[in-house]
């Protein structure tokens, strides 16, 4: 013990080894193997070894509200539309819109982007990927500015585009097409989440996922504190698609959104 005391920092290690050695000396080989397995199982516990590997997603259906982070989201319907408010897709493409009633159930306002993180673009329904949006910007630049090889690759080859990252939804008021930048507590907004979709797609349903949002009070890895972190898929469902306008739902002001547009 005198020796251990003088060597300070590894006193705990030496002590532990001593204890382990003392205990193990009296054990049979089988016992040692068993004890080793138990110790290993205990050791991996803090790293989430027993959490469910497959996050089980609850079903998502139109008309049923779900809680996600600070929001209560009720998907009303899904529709395709040629254009909506200021959004005009490329010729041949159309917009896919998810109309939802969204209520901030918290005490403080939440940004639109938080809602966008909770409802990502549906997979495998020919949503035009992010790269194509950059290319849209390049189109407005003078000729020769855009990379000519990028153009056909991104828009034509839908198979490859599925691997590209899909853009977040553009979130507009379904009533009037205006941009809602902040969701205030207690207010229910009827919003349209819109993505540009390849014109060839003509499915009857889309797979829609709602991502769980976890409140990070103090982040372990970054200096950011107090934000909603998108986590695992919490709800999943196939929502039927109406081939109508996303704004024209049960309310009278649907057409007014179109009225302002040429």
């Amino acid at each position: 013990m005198k020796h251990a005391r003088n060597d300070g920092p590894d006193i705990a290690f030496r002590l532990a080894r001593r204890v382990v050695a003392t205990v193990a000396d009296d054990m049979s080989t089988m016992q040692r193997v068993g004890a080793g397995i138990v110790a290993a199982l205990v050791a991996i516990t803090p790293f989430g070894a027993w959490s469910e590997v497959e996050a089980h997603a609850d079903p998502l259906a139109a008309g049923t509200p779900v809680e996600v982070g600070p929001f209560e989201v009720k998907v009303v319907r899904v529709a395709t539309v040629d254009e909506f408010a200021y959004l005009v897709p490329k010729p041949g493409n159309h917009l896919l819109g998810v109309v939802a009633e969204v209520t901030n159930t918290g005490e403080v306002p939440e940004y639109r982007a938080t809602l966008g993180q909770a409802i990502p673009a549906p997979q495998n329904v020919a949503i035009v990927p992010k790269a194509a949006l950059d290319e849209l910007g390049a189109d407005t630049a003078p000729d020769g500015g855009a990379d000519p090889s990028a153009d056909p690759a991104a828009s034509a080859d839908l198979g490859a585009s599925e691997e590209a990252e899909l853009p977040p939804a553009t979130i507009l008021s379904a009533k009037d097409g205006t941009t809602i930048s902040v969701f205030n507590p207690g207010v229910t907004h009827r919003v349209a989440l819109l993505w540009e979709q390849g014109g060839k797609w003509s499915g009857r349903t889309i797979p829609l996922e709602v991502i769980e949002l976890e409140w990070i009070e103090e982040s372990v890895v970054s200096l950011d504190n107090g934000y909603w972190l998108p986590n695992e898929v919490a709800y999943h469902g196939r929502i039927p698609v109406d081939a109508e306008r996303p704004g024209a739902g049960s309310n009278q002001s649907g057409p007014s959104a179109e009225a302002g547009q040429p």
Binding site: E107, V108, P109, T178, I180, S181, V182, P185, G186
Partner: peptide, 12 residues
């Protein structure tokens, strides 16, 4: 009155 906070919108 309950302490909930509301931020302005730039709509319209």
């Amino acid at each position: 009155a309950r302490g909930r906070r509301f931020w302005p919108t730039d709509q319209a």
